[in-house]
């Protein structure tokens, strides 16, 4: 793994390298270089299998982090590529031409986070949230609790106690 990262370092600028465990490493790169790096890993380093891609909302920093995880089946190792993009009008270069299934992940990220991937097939179609009329639900400014309270009925039989109030009732009810 170290060797691969060293090689990558000659060709791309790597911001952060985190050796999570023997067979998994995280690498952070520039948004502009991400897709070419993915192509390079697929074609020259044996990372032929695309595992998944996902996003994290760093709302305080005004950024989205996109993570691609690739697998090298021969060496049985995973390499995760992270990149950060601006949260406002979030847009990322599509990678669907490298693996077909990327288009599906990108469609999901469009729906869940509102990250656009121009040119990705069917990227604007609903993925699982048919008829969704709110901000993308995985954004951290989406108020899940409020939405749930407005949309669903509460489960019967639930009830809780505030520890401090409960102790008052039990230990000093008359004070």
């Amino acid at each position: 793994m170290k060797k691969i990262i060293e090689n990558l370092g000659y060709k791309f600028i790597l911001y952060e390298v985190e050796y999570q465990r023997k067979n998994l490493t995280f690498v952070t790169v520039d948004k502009e270089n991400t897709v070419q790096l993915l192509a390079y890993l697929r074609d020259y380093e044996g990372f032929k299998h695309f595992v998944l891609m996902t996003a994290v909302d760093w709302i305080e920093d005004g950024l989205f982090q996109i993570t691609y995880i690739l697998n090298n089946p021969k060496k049985k190792i995973d390499l995760a590529i992270r990149t950060k993009i601006l949260r406002e009008k979030a847009k990322m270069t599509t990678a669907h031409h490298l693996w077909n299934q990327v288009a599906t992940y990108q469609r999901e990220l469009k729906e869940m986070f509102g990250i656009d991937f121009p040119g990705s097939p069917r990227v604007n179609e609903s993925f699982i949230l048919e008829g969704w009329d709110n901000i993308p639900p995985m954004r951290r400014d989406f108020d899940t609790k409020k939405y749930a309270e407005e949309t669903y009925f509460p489960r019967l039989g639930r009830g809780t106690n505030d520890p401090s109030e409960y102790m008052k009732q039990k230990l000093y009810p008359n004070e």
Partner: peptide, 8 residues
Amino acid sequence: ENEAIDMV
């Protein structure tokens, strides 16, 4: 975040 826990 999901209010899954009640203190009983």
